[in-house]
């Protein structure tokens, strides 16, 4: 290949452009501001988690971590259950009726969050769901349901019908077929969708920003954004916050990379 050297140079430079900022953030989370400014690329002189201590306790990142975990795990699980039920039904109801319902549901993907957030805010307020984790779970579910139904229905439509007919012949109703045939064979697609939803919901800033004002209920992205005001240019603390907020996803990425790529790709192909 002609461009073999050029190829290496381009890839090498781009790899450095990804690695260096991330490495500076990681090592910076163990430094003081002076150390970071003096030698941003140098290794930290200590691995004492001083910044982590202050970020988790003083800056309420600990609370935020718990909130994010509770909200995201609940919302992802419920979105998957509700979404896979819908996908199963809609992929098996023949004719225009099933298709119309499907179209109505996935039309939601074309609605930007900013376009219904105001009436949603008012509705949540009337129902007493502001400043509540339940309210946050609910909004994350409805915001991601269209794309979840889109991905899962797309997958279930490719399943051969014989698979389900075999079940009906044995006298299994749709519920049994859903549980013991549709769900097990859809596992790879469910896993990819779960990861896609997890990344979106874990990282979401908009809805917590709108619905949560009680410091005890903040999630990680919101806690992180609030750093801006508090620790204006205390970069080591900002970096520590970044690491705390990203660590679960990055660790999961190392082990489940294939599902991350599949999930995020399925999510973007919706366009």
């Amino acid at each position: 290949m002609v461009g073999s050297l050029g190829r290496r140079v381009v890839l090498g430079v781009y790899a450095l452009l990804i690695i260096i900022p991330l490495l500076v953030v990681l090592t910076g989370s163990f430094k003081t501001t002076e150390q970071l400014f003096d030698a941003p690329f140098g290794p930290p002189s200590t691995l004492a988690p001083t910044n982590y201590g202050s970020v988790l306790t003083d800056a309420s990142m600990g609370t935020a971590f718990v909130n994010s975990t509770v909200v995201t795990v609940t919302a992802v699980a419920l979105t998957l259950v509700i979404g896979s039920l819908a996908a199963y039904g809609l992929s098996r109801i023949p004719g225009w009726k099933g298709f119309a319902l499907y179209g109505f549901l996935v039309l939601g993907m074309a609605v930007p969050a900013q376009s219904n957030m105001i009436p949603q805010y008012v509705l949540w307020q009337r129902l007493g769901l502001l400043d509540s984790r339940l309210g946050l779970v609910l909004v994350e579910i409805v915001a991601t349901l269209p794309v979840a139904v889109f991905i899962l229905t797309g997958f279930m439509r490719t399943l051969p019908r014989e698979l389900f007919e075999a079940g009906s012949i044995d006298g299994a109703g749709p519920w049994r077929t859903y549980r013991s045939i549709a769900l097990p064979v859809s596992l790879p697609s469910l896993a990819a969708t779960a990861i896609f939803l997890f990344v979106i919901q874990w990282n979401d800033l908009l809805y917590p920003l709108l619905f949560i004002h009680d410091p005890a209920k903040v999630t990680l992205p919101l806690a992180l954004l609030n750093f801006q005001g508090e620790f204006l240019t205390n970069y080591p603390l900002l970096f520590t916050g970044v690491i705390v907020a990203s660590a679960p996803l990055v660790v999961a990425y190392v082990f489940l990379q294939r599902y991350f790529v599949a999930g995020l790709t399925a999510g973007s192909v919706k366009g």
């Binding site: 819908a86 039904g89 319902l101 609605v111 219904n116 749709p174």
Partner: peptide
Amino acid sequence: HPGLWFFPVPALLLYLVFFAGPTLQA
């Protein structure tokens, strides 16, 4: 099977009340 019609119901209800409704209200 008529039971199939129940499967999309939870999704449709949530979507109507908490997503489509607010979109129209905008």
